[in-house]
Design a protein around this nucleic acid. Structure first.
Length: 1121
RNA sequence: GAGGGAAUGCCGGAGCGGUCAAACGGGCCAGACUCAAGAUCUGGUAGCUUAUGCUUACGGGGGUUCGAAUCCUCCUUCCCUCACCA
């Protein structure tokens, strides 16, 4: 057999396609608005995820990925679509930088060398790309628009900067996204432990779109698993946010009263201001378990520092004390603090007074002292209350205090000197709030129904506000715990035992006012929800374990109702039933119930014999509707109901009957997390817990103690990378103005070539690039040296393909409107959560910016499977021996043979293996085709062939549409098998080539020209289907021949009648239009039974078992009686 | 623990309640052509048997149905994703 020169054929047609721009998509609409020919066709945008061009080129696995898209692009193009099938390179980013460094080259040089190599290889596979649209993200004309989008997001408030703990890979020398960390290891370096580092980072507010990102998924035609993964990632959960008051580490509140003027109304009891807020405040605080010290000072009308000090020295003051002074009390308090030099949490001065009254020198010493500067250092927080209508001296005093100890001044309206006379009330809520500020912790829960079962709280060990909760006594224990925690590497977090430590603080359960301890725990995630959980050990397994470990109360609030239905086998049922009958006559359902009730023990024993497991119990409930038997050991409950079928049993059975003794948690080894009725929950007792969720939430909302919330797991996207090879973030840091956005007109900020690699961020090694003028004030500024995550580039590239060369705008919205969204997006499943969420986010942003008019980037998404080498070895470019190279395959078998072989292996979403013997089989086929064409002589087609041809065209079209390439190859083989048996017409051969073209473009193009065609088969019209040819053949085959329906029915009935010879009458149900064709007498005669025929839509038909619905065209439904 | 997917002859892999001992390919076996091998072509490839026959078979147990690889249910096993998410 003659050898076919595949290389020559491939080159020939690749060059011809290129020269004639065969695959160039026609751009529409043009700027002038003129509509051209191609725009009249429907558009189809098929896109494969663009690669990062590695220097080592591509292997067969990559080639296959692109081929998957190419087949559909070619099919669509022939089917009359204006197809956009572009290719580009994700050349800017970490992978490329790493590869370049490894190769010892500058990333620019490395990339510029790699891309042409990639293009060459891709062209050699015969991919039908529009090469005029190729783009590379490292091109500043591309990443200019990354920067532009960043500025737009900044304008819209979707960008912010914050210091945050980041994942740091020491090998990449950069920050990794959460998604890029697997098991505490870098996604690119499996040997590198990711470390936690604190850095100032730029973030994009992806959370702003969390709701839409989540909800839209339901409407999208994407693979279920991808949608499931994204849903999981975004993690929407509905719940209730409940306010817990935790008066954390306030060890006590100390109140110092002032010295009322002699003419001021005075309270005889307290010797201070009359009806003062002091008493009200004390009461309010004590209600909340906060200790209040409010000593009465000696002779307030003639205050003496030493005497007062003596009184005060008796009090316990520590770093968690809050000290409040009023009026002259402030003067004392500050002086005293200067003397004792102790640390306190907070100092609140209300209408402070530090100036002696004119003309009265007696207590001058009390007021006019020098404030010790250590006060400023020792006091955690200072707040000064004053009022607009305070006396001049008072106002002066405020300034004096503020000068020496600083603090926040709160000026209230018309409160004078904050006495009853000035305020008109003894309630001083602003002060109360100031003391308890931040003590309300909104806690997220999905189980508000268990609120009464809360017996402790757990705050994340990494919670930023943990310190506020730690009391003096517990400080040491907590520190010890935290230290231990840090020594454990993050990768073990999953296996970590739940551990915690008491913080010393107590929270107040808003439902019942009970105090519960607050623990710090290693199992609470700091940045989800509130970073603190309400723990219900009786009904949450994790909490349960924790409570057991630390011997915390477990309070049950849901009564278990454990039921499960197990269907008992027919034979067992029968046997059991026969035995039950021995106990009495069974006439009907009630009599059966009676037997059960009266013979509980006997039935019980019988059940024991008949059914597996034990020991057994029978539970009855008055009139027995069912017997419930369960095995305590297996903790399962079997139910059997004579009347109710197993299907219904589920509906009916679950709620009825089972009474289990209340679970005793001392004996219990696990929490009860299933449904049940509430108990120990006050007014909510007895409510079904599902209902209770609603009711308790409603109650909390009414009391303003909670609210319904939706919580997301999705975090904002940290885009900062401390790397060179990324889009520079368009920000200039000015000494005066802070972070200033670069004006749009200055874009792009190009990456400087002259940088040094090795330590830290290479960009910072180019001083010339770094130092710039501030765009705002013209002063000294430095460029932001962080670059953007590579996913920023790939989040919108598919839009740029529509208008890749536009240097005025990111793209012409009219062009994008025509082409987008992408109709078919093909890429690996590994991008399900990163790239595909980010690009959805970008699309939504650009839509809200008014640039595009659709919501999602791609209508359909397809994940291809992986191609492995012979024997299942993963192909890796770093291990050349594992790789099958397209050029090698091409030389030996021709690239079309490889395309055919891979298509025939399995559906493209499955993982497949390369096999040398397998491709031999495909090579046999391609050779046979060439062989046939060589010897072919024009002739007429047989009917059988025309039937097969048309049927194949019809089916294959559907197969290409749905990525069922394997089935396409099978039918094409079958068709060719028929063709090869005879000499067929030219038309048939041409049609055959056309449907074969998407998979094997080169050889079909070659054979097409051999048949004398001067045009390209690749853009020829897809063959039509002659339905008549298919129809007539099928009729002949007798399958659905309506004239023979009677015979068919007889044949069908014969075996059934044989089997059920005792039945007298046969009812047949047919489709209405077939009724006339069915002869009941004829059939009846043939089978020897009485036959009655009904149309399925006949409402008067006799059909006790509702069989009629089973009838189908050409097929009757049968009922025997 | 949560979610998603899967299980078919020697292998890969189609399978629409009846036309299913189950497409197609690979492998293997036999035959043809050859001195021979390869290539090519033809046939076979669950068992009994050589019949337009029966039996056993689509992970296992049950069920629905006149009829199940296909529908329901439980179980087992495997793969993937997320994983202390309150």
């Amino acid at each position: 057999m003659e050898e076919i020169n595949f290389a020559k054929i491939e080159k020939k047609w690749q060059n011809a396609w290129e020269k004639e721009k065969v695959f160039y998509a026609q751009d529409v609409p043009s700027a002038s608005g003129k509509v051209n020919e191609k725009s009249k066709k429907p558009k189809y945008y098929v896109l494969e995820m663009f690669p990062y061009p590695s220097g080592s080129g591509l292997h067969m696995g990559h080639a296959w990925n692109y081929t998957i898209g190419d087949i559909i692009a070619r099919f669509k193009r022939m089917s009359g679509f204006n197809v956009l099938h572009p290719m580009g390179y994700d050349s800017l980013g970490l992978p490329a930088e790493n590869a370049a460094i490894e190769a010892g080259q500058h990333p620019i040089d490395y990339t510029n060398k790699s891309i042409p190599n990639f293009v060459k290889q891709q062209k050699a596979i015969g991919l039908s790309y529009d090469w005029s649209r190729v783009l590379s993200t490292h091109d500043s004309s591309y990443y200019k628009w990354d920067q532009w989008i960043f500025l737009k997001m900044l304008e819209k408030g979707l960008v912010y900067q914050k210091t945050s703990a980041v994942n740091w890979c020491s090998k990449c020398n950069t920050v990794l996204a959460n998604e890029q960390v697997h098991d505490g290891k870098c996604w690119r370096h499996e040997d590198i432990d990711v470390k936690v580092k604190q850095l100032k980072q730029w973030f994009l507010k992806t959370t702003e779109y969390a709701e839409e990102l989540y909800e839209n998924l339901d409407k999208m035609d994407w693979p279920d698993r991808t949608k499931a993964m994204q849903k999981n990632w975004i993690g929407k959960s509905h719940g209730t946010e409940i306010d817990f008051e935790i008066n954390g580490n306030i060890s006590n509140v100390v109140l110092v009263h002032g010295c009322p003027d002699s003419n001021e109304p005075r309270d005889p009891e307290t010797r201070t201001y009359e009806k003062h807020w002091r008493l009200w405040l004390k009461g309010e605080l004590e209600k909340r378990n906060i200790k209040v010290d409010a000593p009465l000072m000696p002779e307030p009308w003639a205050p003496d520092y030493k005497k007062w000090k003596k009184e005060f020295d008796k009090l316990d003051i520590d770093e968690n004390s809050v000290l409040i002074g009023h009026s002259c009390g402030c003067a004392f308090l500050v002086r005293w603090l200067g003397d004792i030099k102790r640390k306190i949490k907070k100092l609140i001065l209300v209408a402070p007074w530090k100036i002696a009254y004119k003309g009265d020198g007696s207590d001058k010493d009390f007021y006019e002292y020098k404030i010790n500067e250590c006060v400023r250092l020792n006091v955690g927080e200072v707040v000064i209350f004053t009022s607009n209508n305070e006396e001049e001296d008072g106002k002066k005093s405020v300034k004096l205090f503020e000068k020496d100890i600083g603090g926040e001044i709160i000026e209230l309206k018309n409160q004078g000197h904050f006495t009853y006379g000035d305020m008109g009330t003894h309630e001083f809520h602003k002060l109360f709030d100031e003391i308890t500020e931040g003590n309300v912790w909104p806690i997220f829960t999905t189980r508000p129904d268990t609120i009464f079962g809360v017996t402790f709280m757990v705050v994340a060990a990494q919670h930023p506000r943990l310190d506020e909760l730690v009391t003096k006594d517990q400080r040491r224990d907590v520190d010890k715990f935290l230290k231990k925690l840090k020594s454990v590497s993050e990768k073990d977090i999953g296996d970590l035992e739940k551990e915690g430590v008491f913080t010393g603080s107590y929270a107040v359960n808003p439902a019942n006012g009970k105090k519960v301890p607050v623990y710090a725990g290693n199992f609470v995630v700091a940045d989800y929800g509130a970073g603190m959980v309400m723990a219900v050990p009786a009904h949450d397994q994790r909490d349960f374990e924790f409570a057991k470990k630390y011997k915390i109360d477990i309070k049950q609030v849901i009564k278990p109702e454990r039921t499960s239905i197990v269907t008992i086998t027919k034979s067992l049922k029968k046997e059991f039933y026969e035995n039950v009958k021995k106990f009495g006559e069974v006439r009907d359902y009630d009599s059966l119930s009676k037997i059960y009730t009266e013979n509980v023990d006997k039935v019980f024993n019988l059940a024991k014999e008949n059914f597996i497991g034990g020991p057994w119990y029978i539970h009855s409930e008055g009139n027995i509707k069912k017997i419930l038997i369960y095995s305590k050991q297996k903790s399962e409950i079997f139910s059997w109901d004579n009347e109710v079928e197993s299907k219904e049993a589920k509906k009916f059975g679950l709620k009825v009957g089972i009474k289990k003794e209340q679970l005793d948690y001392d004996e219990l080894y696990r929490a009860y997390t299933d449904e049940g009725a509430l108990m120990n929950s006050g007014e909510f007792d007895g409510l079904d817990n599902i209902q209770a969720k609603r009711e308790i939430t409603k109650y909390l909302i009414e009391k303003k103690l909670g609210r319904r919330v939706v919580n997301f797991k999705l975090r904002d996207w940290g885009i900062s990378r401390q790397r060179y090879w990324g889009t520079p973030i368009p920000i200039i840091h000015c000494e005066k103005c802070g972070a200033v956005p670069v004006p749009e007109s200055d874009l792009p900020i190009e990456l400087p070539k002259n940088v040094k690699f090795g330590k830290g961020n290479p960009l910072e090694t180019n001083e010339k690039w770094m130092s710039v003028k501030c765009p705002k004030c013209g002063g000294k500024g430095r460029r932001e040296s962080d670059t953007m995550d590579t996913f920023a580039n790939s989040s919108w590239y598919f839009l740029r393909y529509c208008d890749p060369k536009n240097d005025k705008k990111i793209f012409d919205p009219r062009k994008v409107k025509y082409w987008c969204p992408v109709d078919m997006y093909i890429g690996g499943a590994e991008h399900a959560c990163m790239h595909l969420i980010y690009s959805r986010f970008y699309v939504k942003f650009l839509r809200d910016l008014g640039l595009i008019n659709f919501d999602e980037p791609a209508v359909r998404l397809f994940h291809q499977g992986m191609l492995s080498g012979e024997g299942g070895v993963k192909m890796s470019k770093s291990k050349p021996e594992t790789c099958v190279l397209p050029e090698a395959v091409s030389d030996k078998y021709g690239i079309d043979t490889a395309r055919f072989f891979l298509s025939s292996l399995a559906s493209p979403d499955k993982d497949i293996y390369w096999s040398d013997s397998g491709i031999n089989g495909s090579a046999r086929f391609t050779r046979r085709i060439f062989e046939y064409f060589k010897n072919w002589k024009k002739d007429k087609d047989s009917d059988e062939l025309l039937f097969k041809l048309n049927k194949t065209i019809k089916n294959v079209s559907g197969y290409y549409e749905n990525f069922e390439y394997r089935k396409a190859t099978i039918e094409i083989r079958e068709l060719f098998d028929l063709i090869s048996r005879e000499n067929v017409s030219k038309e048939t051969l041409e049609k055959f080539l056309k449907i074969f073209n998407p998979i094997c473009p080169h050889i079909t193009e070659e054979l097409w020209s051999q048949l004398g065609n001067k045009d390209f088969i690749s853009i020829s019209k897809w063959p039509g289907v002659d339905e008549k040819k298919i129809q007539s053949q099928e009729d002949d085959s007798g399958e659905l021949n309506k004239g023979q329906l009677n015979e068919k029915i007889i044949e069908e009935l014969k075996p059934i009648i044989k089997k059920y010879s005792d039945k007298k009458k046969v009812y047949l149900y047919v489709m209405p239009f077939e009724l006339s064709k069915v002869n009941s007498a004829k059939i009846g005669k043939a089978i020897g039974k009485v036959v009655e025929v009904f149309a399925v839509n006949n409402s008067g038909k006799y059909d006790p078992e509702n069989k009629a619905k089973k009838a189908k065209p050409g097929m009757v439904a049968i009922y025997l009686e």
